[in-house]
Amino acid sequence: MIISVASGKGGTGKTTVATNLALSLDNVQFIDCDVEEPNAHIFLKPEIEKKLTVNIPIPKVDESKCNYCGKCADICAFNAIAVLGEKVLVFSELCHGCGGCSLLCPENAIAEAGNKIGIVEIGKADNILFVDGKLDIGEPMSPPLIREAKKYINTDKTVIIDVPPGTSCPVIEAVKGSDFCILVTEPTPFGLYDLELAVELIKKLEIPFGVVINQSDIGDEKVEQYCLNLNIPILMEIPFDKDIAFEYSRGIPIVVKKLEKKQNFKNLYHQIKELVK
């Protein structure tokens, strides 16, 4: 089973829920798809065994074959290639790697070369198989890196995916293909508004989902009310606890500090199993 942990708003506790759930179950693979700001490694402390470079294909023009007809620039939907007189310019940061220019060049003058956008790291944190992606500084596009990290999914395991915040393309890339999605929120107007956006997104993807309310005793009742009105299961509530916040600040997961809390996360998993049936 693949369980992704998402939220519209950042900083609501996705990584907290994802890592504590991973530490409470057996036979787990953890994939950190928040490749812009991957943090799960801080809590799981994996030993990294492999670091793999991730490239996206960008056009490489063989100017000896090119007759500067401009077809590549015409068909590129992302303005990533331009022909100026007798010069072809490639803007790698705009290129989506669709391969259209190289496929459609009438002179066969365009090959593709790899442009590094980041790395995927593979390792182990005790019994948890660990994968994460790290986007290079200055690179604008994260979905190809998320796609690459997800290629290492091992479905013999319970796969837990830590998703980036928001509701746009990186989130979809990370959540796509999950059997269940946990939406983590907080009981504030920001938490509620962004939860509504996240629900809209997950419904579009037609993935079963439920909500975890973090810091459940600060703020107001409106998130709970919203879930009740829409019949969205509230899977777990985590009350605010200054001790837990302190332990979090030093990279120590709840269930490492308070072993008995593992049961709460096991219950979370069992509820999900029932809902997926």
Partner: peptide
């Protein structure tokens, strides 16, 4: 930022992006 290892890790990355640009 916040005095948490996560926020500090991310501070470093976003600072580098700002510097890059």
């Amino acid at each position: 930022t916040e005095p948490t290892l996560s926020a500090m890790h991310d501070l470093d990355r976003v600072y580098k992006v700002a510097k890059h640009f």
